[in-house]
């Protein structure tokens, strides 16, 4: 991850909430947290594409509890792919132009409802499919968001879940020993 944490304390305090802006810094597209706690530099997409993608990825998979940094990381990963794939740069450029044209008003100026409607109208397009397919993997594969969804991931390094709550549910019926024998604890 090429994310730069500019102010560690501020980042930790606000990672889940802070809104981001896209700016050009020395000619490079940079996604910058509003409070300047973090920044990401892109290599393939221009500032406008980056800003539209940031909005689009959130509209595709909106989680109010997730700050912009997680969507920015999705855009950053797509940018990394695009740096190796010129066709992807073109696809995104044309796709963003189509989003801006759909209602005769730039996509970013549309309301939530209109943005969703415009995206729904483009569902069959390769641009939409590419961004959606990328986002559904990149967003939920980010271990930093797992906490928010109560997913704990890999466990073998801690001895599995055997002694860490694999049958701690508490609110169900208790299966009899024939259906569910006690664990072997060594």
């Amino acid at each position: 991850m090429s994310k730069h944490i500019l102010d560690r304390r501020e980042f930790l305090r606000t990672a889940g909430a802070t809104a981001a802006a896209v700016v050009a810094v020395s000619g490079a597209t940079t996604i910058l947290a509003a409070n300047r706690a973090w920044a990401m530099t892109l290599g393939a997409f221009g500032p406008h594409e980056a800003e539209v993608l940031l909005r689009m990825t959130r509209q595709l998979y909106p989680h109010d509890g997730l700050g912009d940094i997680y969507y920015a990381e999705v855009v950053e990963a797509l940018d990394a792919k695009a740096q190796a794939t010129p066709e992807l740069v073109e696809l995104v450029k044309n796709g963003v132009a189509a989003l801006d044209k759909a209602k005769g008003v730039p996509f970013l100026e549309l309301s939530d409802g209109y943005q969703t409607e415009v995206l729904a109208g483009m569902e069959a397009e390769p641009f939409f499919q590419t961004v959606r397919g990328h986002t559904v993997v990149a967003l939920y594969n980010n271990q930093v968001v797992w906490d928010q969804f109560g997913y704990q991931g890999s466990s073998w390094q801690d001895g599995g879940y055997l002694k860490r709550g694999f049958q701690d549910i508490g609110w169900t019926m208790q299966p009899d020993a024939e259906a569910s024998p006690p664990p072997f604890l060594g």
């Binding site: 694999f166 049958q167 169900t172 019926m173 299966p175 024998p181 006690p182």
Partner: peptide, 15 residues
């Protein structure tokens, strides 16, 4: 060979 112990997912299913 005894059965495996049921996890949380199994307990919901069993219920």
């Amino acid at each position: 060979i005894p059965g495996l112990p049921g996890n949380n997912n199994f307990k919901v299913f069993y219920t």
